[in-house]
Design a protein around this nucleic acid. Structure first.
Lengths: 344, 344
DNA sequence: TTGAAAGCGATACCAC
DNA sequence: GTGGTATCGCTTTCAA
């Protein structure tokens, strides 16, 4: 059996209480005694028993608030599943989660929910923000109140958030670029269907793609001019129809956010399935189908479940055990899915 | 706060001991009372507090044995890291891990270590087996002794093991095939560098590849005749040299196990880097380098760390909480790595 | 068949 | 500064 605090106490000839205070330097202990305790703890190879610690700390009772935007999207539904899972697992530790779901992007709703959660006395908040000054301000105010904030899925990097959990969209874009390059050994034409241009995530997926293409020096790959489709399948459909008319020899279409269903439909209608190949984002149900049917060749997934699952744990680690995340951005895996490795 | 056994006891008017026995049907409780307890537990929404449970169960003390073969390989080193990590985390639960490292494949050593562990009284064993009758027999004998066995990395499917943690090599082969197909839109030549033909894992990576190629009906892809390289880089090097002489227009080389360093060297010497592209297995240090240098285009990783990390938890769940894994094979993620998404 | 009580390991409060 | 003790939720043993 592992070493306990009691054993250290016995060895040094003090009480557990003193050992506890020394080990966690809570003060109120004679420096010499503390030194002796620390030394014997090291000698005996003491490591805190996290289960005992966890149990003792359930006495403190915590409430965490979570605010999600765009909950109507499949991705956010996966995030929610992750949150619920975390909620169940953390209930044992005396944590309670309060989830607020916001349809679409709605800054004022988010601000309201923050205030509401604070009024109800939550000790930590996780949210999917937009990087707007008002929200950044509010996060900083929460920081001053001693309420840690974790951003998820999207970030507010200029704020005093504890950390961010989500995809490194720039690297995801680079990865997509690599896939496109590998798909076009003899070169060819690439069409990009962009999302909202003012959305940071989509913009990063785009610039990562372009930068990697440039640094791979693939000048036999031709980029066709592109417009954003604003995540709308009907726009994407129409854009693709036109592009296919002008360029029936198109090689790859890169969809930086939504719109892949419209794209695939247009390809299918033109009888070019498998010929014109598609790289898209997020392994959700519709995309699973499109992968299996051979309409999409690669999906880059951002691990939405994990984006919901981790933040509550980060907050509880911070609040219960004073543990700060190692990095201020915890990037989820950039996971490449094909029809043959769909499941995780 | 969540409902506790004490609260149920108070509500029903019995003691916690009785509630405990009823909830976990340990017997020795009046059926009617038991029924009443179960009912109120449901009504009050009781869920067992795993922390309390875990703490109470640390009184029982368990030892688990782990036997790994081919520990000299980078993959197994990752497995070992996973095991050590699990060991640290489980020490709190009163679990102790006893790791036995075997160089190369050595059936008799494995059998010896099993016996040695049993003599020393371990309650569960994890091992990387070869599917040989003697070992299968031994695993079945352990089963009869009530000692659960988890296989990892490689499997012994015909044995009475509790479950297997590792890659679905057939699907990994299919995935590799898909990558090769996507890399050769106009068709081209594929050369396969196989490992040991009598190794199930390698054989499955091969047949998955061939089957997927067939089912994708890519008859413009030509498979060159191949020999095994037995995981030796010098053989792989020579084979590749010859193939490149005969087929300078070679498109893709698929390396089913080791040998990729020899392959890459030959490609590099022929000045065909990036021209002749490589799909290989396992994200270890050498392969990371080769990815970054553009010598290998895709690595399919089997999550070796996880293969070490999970089995001790599976055994402890089984022994401490009577939880049986949902499936008899827990396949690790088939993870596709490129130079741009190397880190997990 | 049931209850009471002693742990598991750590924390925190209250006396001294 | 320090020790004693109640407590967290559950398991397990021992009497009754």
């Amino acid at each position: 059996m592992a070493v306990t605090m009691q054993q250290i106490a016995d060895a040094v000839g003090v009480s557990r209480g003193t050992v506890d205070r020394a080990l966690h330097n809570r003060g109120r202990v004679n420096p010499e005694v503390a030194e002796r305790i620390l030394q014997t703890a090291r000698d005996m190879g003491y490591k805190t028993n996290i289960i005992g610690q966890a149990l003792a700390r359930t006495k403190r009772n915590f409430r965490l608030g979570i605010i999600l935007q765009s909950v109507e999207t499949p991705t956010m539904q996966d995030v929610i599943r992750g949150i619920r899972q975390a909620g169940e697992e953390l209930r044992s530790s005396g944590l309670e989660l309060d989830l607020r779901e916001v349809q679409g992007l709605d800054l004022s709703r988010v601000l309201e929910e923050i205030d509401s959660l604070v009024r109800e006395g939550v000790q930590g908040i996780a949210l999917s923000p937009t990087d707007r000054p008002e929200l950044v301000d509010r996060i900083d105010r929460l920081y001053n109140l001693g309420i840690p904030v974790v951003t998820l899925n999207s970030d507010a990097p200029s704020s005093r958030r504890l950390c961010f959990v989500g995809m490194d969209n720039y690297r995801a874009g680079q990865t997509a670029s690599w896939l496109a390059c590998q798909m076009l050994p003899q070169g060819g034409k690439v069409f990009i269907v962009a999302g909202h241009l003012n959305n940071t995530a989509h913009a990063n997926r785009l610039s990562g793609f372009l930068d990697a293409l440039a640094s791979e020096r693939r000048d036999n790959i031709q980029l066709l001019s592109f417009q954003p489709c604003f995540g709308r399948d009907d726009y994407a459909h129409e854009m693709t129809q036109h592009i296919l008319q002008d360029h029936p020899d198109l090689g790859v279409i890169y969809v930086t956010s939504h719109g892949q269903e419209g794209v695939c439909q247009a390809i299918s209608e033109a009888g070019l399935t498998g010929q014109v190949r598609v790289i898209a984002y997020d392994l959700n149900e519709p995309n699973r189908q499109l992968l299996e049917n051979g309409m999409i060749q690669f999906v880059i997934d951002q691990r939405a479940f994990e984006q919901g699952y981790r933040p509550p744990f980060l907050l509880s680690d911070y609040l219960l055990y004073d543990r700060v995340p190692e990095t201020r951005q915890l990037y989820t895996d950039i996971s490449i899915r094909t029809k043959y490795n769909i499941s995780n």
